[in-house]
């Protein structure tokens, strides 16, 4: 069988663990060929040197230095901007319901010029279930309870998710 020395790529692949287990050629060749064994040893030493490099160390005060450079306003909250938008919509909707029930804005809305273009049945889809609920309850007390509950929920979500208690930056620096 003709002796073909291993290429650099084959030796590096062998050391990187990229040679399939079933492929015995490299192992078999290394067993018989001193030249390739020497090349392998050189690469092994090089790998050892690279892996045991001391690396680079930053000063112990580095994290504090970074924290002092952070913008004062929390700008990394973009993930929640949709949630904040959702809360605002909920708030407006609730306020709308409450207002409608409180001062009966329906006739006023219908009186707005051009409102006829909109299908009022669409608005009724949202209003009807709420009105049915209120009719079943005492209107005044249910309004107060519902409004208060909604405000508490919104405030709780805002407190838990968006504004958790945090240490000021200065306490960490």
């Amino acid at each position: 069988m003709e002796l073909r020395h291993l290429t650099d790529e084959e030796i590096q692949d062998y050391l990187d663990g990229n040679i399939p287990e079933g492929d015995k050629y490299v192992q078999e060749h290394l067993r018989r060929c001193e030249r390739c064994r020497n090349a392998l040893q050189e690469y092994k030493s090089l790998y050892f040197g690279l892996k045991n490099d001391q690396g680079f160390d930053l000063a112990a005060s580095f994290p504090q230095a970074v924290l002092s450079k952070l913008p004062k306003e929390q700008t990394a909250r973009s993930r929640f901007r949709y949630f904040e938008f959702f809360l605002i919509i909920i708030g407006i909707t609730v306020a709308g319901y409450v207002s409608l029930q409180f001062i009966n804005l329906r006739p006023l809305i219908q009186a707005i010029p051009g409102i006829q273009i909109l299908d009022f049945r669409f608005i009724s889809i949202f209003l009807d279930p709420f009105e049915s609920l209120l009719k079943a309850l005492n209107i005044n007390s249910s309004l107060i309870i519902f409004s208060a509950l909604t405000l508490v929920i919104i405030k709780a979500l805002d407190y838990i998710i968006l504004h958790p208690k945090e240490k000021p930056l200065s306490s960490l620096i």
Binding site: L70, H163, L169
Partner: peptide, 25 residues
């Protein structure tokens, strides 16, 4: 990540400490 996004700077300090070696490399 969520704690950092919520403004928890202590959590971010932990991220710095964990990754400063990688970044310095």
């Amino acid at each position: 990540v969520n704690r950092i996004l919520a403004g928890n700077t202590r959590a971010f300090k932990a991220v710095i400490q964990e990754h400063q070696r990688l970044v310095s490399h």
